[in-house]
Amino acid sequence: MSVPHIGLYYFGALSLVLVGIYGVLVKKNLLKILISLSIVETGVNLLLISVGYITGRSAPILSEGIGPKQAVDPIPQALVLTAIVIGVATTAMALSVAITLYEKYGTLNIEEIRRLRG
């Protein structure tokens, strides 16, 4: 691989994203697709946080002994904080769409649903 050394966290985040996309591409069950999407989301969050990390510094809580020069970047953390909450709400909404679809068609297989819809 000609890719230079890539941080462990980057690797983990990227792997989560790819595994999630794999699930979206291959699985036919709606719930499974939503689970995969949720994993993608976790991966993206992890990526954002690890981009903001600075080696040897501590959390951006400015208490005794931790000045502005000793803290990691707080902006990605602020972004991700809200993204997680929104994520679960939207996942819940997608799940309720899935439930409604199941009640209507009796299946969660997306192709089956597509076929039944005609």
Partner: peptide, 13 residues
Amino acid sequence: ASILFFLLQAPDV
């Protein structure tokens, strides 16, 4: 992932 967040100095997240 939450453990990793903690290790990445993001306790809030």
